[in-house]
Design a protein around this nucleic acid. Structure first.
Lengths: 264, 264
DNA sequence: AACGATTTGTTCGTATGTATC
DNA sequence: TGATACATACGAACAAATCGT
């Protein structure tokens, strides 16, 4: 037999999942629930907390307990648009990775100016770039917003040798117009021919949480998308780690021939 | 000023993120923490709960509070292996989607026999398959395990017309050997030329939670990967929704030319 | 196998703070 | 300003799981 607060939670949960209580609706107050289930206020609060942790309900001080309304999520396409040119040349062409990643219609994306640092590669970065831990790398970090709501935190690492060989703009704290991918082709002839993304979900650290949480409330999980880009020789040329709040982001992967649009 | 339980939590969190407390380590007991922070036991418990919700710490009755050890995650590649043949024919060939999805080395995957149902399409399924709500569909549902630990719940929907036109095995409660993709080519000449995945994270429902949670404990978020497969004419031929526990699964997306292996 | 000590889990009571209307 | 509703904090008692004797 489950503890009482869990039974109360499951009873409420059933009403939510079945749709008897709809998004936007208010749930009875703690006082009412206390009488309905003949439990103490603290027990009722434990039940509500059990539901509010994964975000099934939302408590608002002074107002009540509510079912969160569905928000319109940001959608990001992880695969480059292979339809922009014909033939397999696309995959080897300049297009990959450039202009990728934002499929935000009628939205206003905005980035902070990059924070550029010269660092020594830690173990994680070194492993991805196939360099030695402690080697010099360029780190470029940006906060990204859409419609003034926090969207993602992004950090890219490049081997320092790229800047030494001529791609000096990598070390400037400016947005690189037209993207770093194109810039590296023009300056070094270094072509990004592909990339690999690793998608994980985890708890945000302190810095990420403060960026992501508009309400003062608690936890949301974050997506971490770790992208390693490769050059013509199959060598890693960049590592980009982007962190998105999981409650307002979705990702799309297209493989093969896929018709336009859709995906509700 | 933050409430006391939050300050205690942040103090502990700092010790964890800085590495002063390592994975596997035990945190002082509630009694000790109560003395250290001069708070009541309930306040200390609130602090620990604040950390345990996103999984930063783990409580074990009768034992204590611990930092979870990192588990070796299952990795699934969402993009088909385009390297198996030469030229762009790969994308149009039979290979896409078949044999995809499992990159489990030295592991023992196991599926339950499918539960097959003839249903009427609900709004969500109908929208993805571009059919009318209420149209007949075949639903095939499986629970999938790796090394006897719950891995994912998978449901596929096909238009019923496929079975009526000759692909009768879709309605049998047997594993379709060599995959449904190959089977549909052989029986109907229906070739899957591509697919689109939509990746989201959400709270599990009751059924998913009971499948996914070996401990009786609380919440983990789940990945939901919704895959729509398209045939030669660009029409949706299948919808597959797979749900994975987020704490032990990662996903890989390869685009363009990507060297073998790697990706730690 | 039984028991006691330790530790977290559940339940209730009470008081006070803070946000909203 | 007052009423309502959730948030924080403390105290207390007992239950349940774990471990060692």
């Amino acid at each position: 037999m489950n503890p009482m607060y869990r039974q109360i939670a499951e009873d409420l949960r059933e009403q939510i999942e079945s749709g008897r209580i709809a998004p936007g609706d208010q749930i009875p107050t703690e006082i009412v629930l206390r009488e309905r289930y003949r439990a103490s206020r603290n027990t009722v609060r434990d039940a509500v907390k059990w539901l509010s942790n994964p975000g099934l309900v939302e408590t608002r001080p002074g107002q009540g307990i509510f079912i969160p309304t569905k928000i319109d999520p940001f959608r990001t396409t992880l695969t480059a648009d292979t339809k922009r040119a014909a033939g397999q040349e696309v995959l080897a062409g300049e297009g990959i990775g450039y202009q990728t990643e934002v499929e935000v219609q009628n939205r206003a994306p905005r980035n902070t100016t990059p924070r550029v640092e010269l660092q020594r590669a830690n173990a994680a970065v070194a492993a991805q770039l196939l360099i030695t831990e402690g080697d010099q790398v360029i780190s470029r970090h940006q906060r990204r917003y859409i419609d003034d709501t926090p969207w993602s935190l992004q950090t890219s690492w490049y081997p320092r040798t790229l800047a030494d060989n001529g791609a000096v703009q990598l070390t400037y704290a400016d947005d690189i117009e037209e993207g770093a991918v194109k810039y590296l082709i023009e300056t070094l002839g270094l072509t990004q021919v592909g990339y690999r993304d690793l998608i994980t979900v985890r708890a945000p650290d302190t810095r990420e949480a403060s960026f992501v949480n508009l309400p003062s409330d608690g936890r949301v999980a974050v997506f971490e998308i770790s992208r390693v880009a490769f050059d013509q020789e199959g060598k890693p040329m960049r590592l980009t780690v982007t962190v998105f709040p999981a409650d307002r982001n979705q990702f799309i992967v297209n493989v093969g021939d896929v018709p336009q649009a859709g995906g509700g």
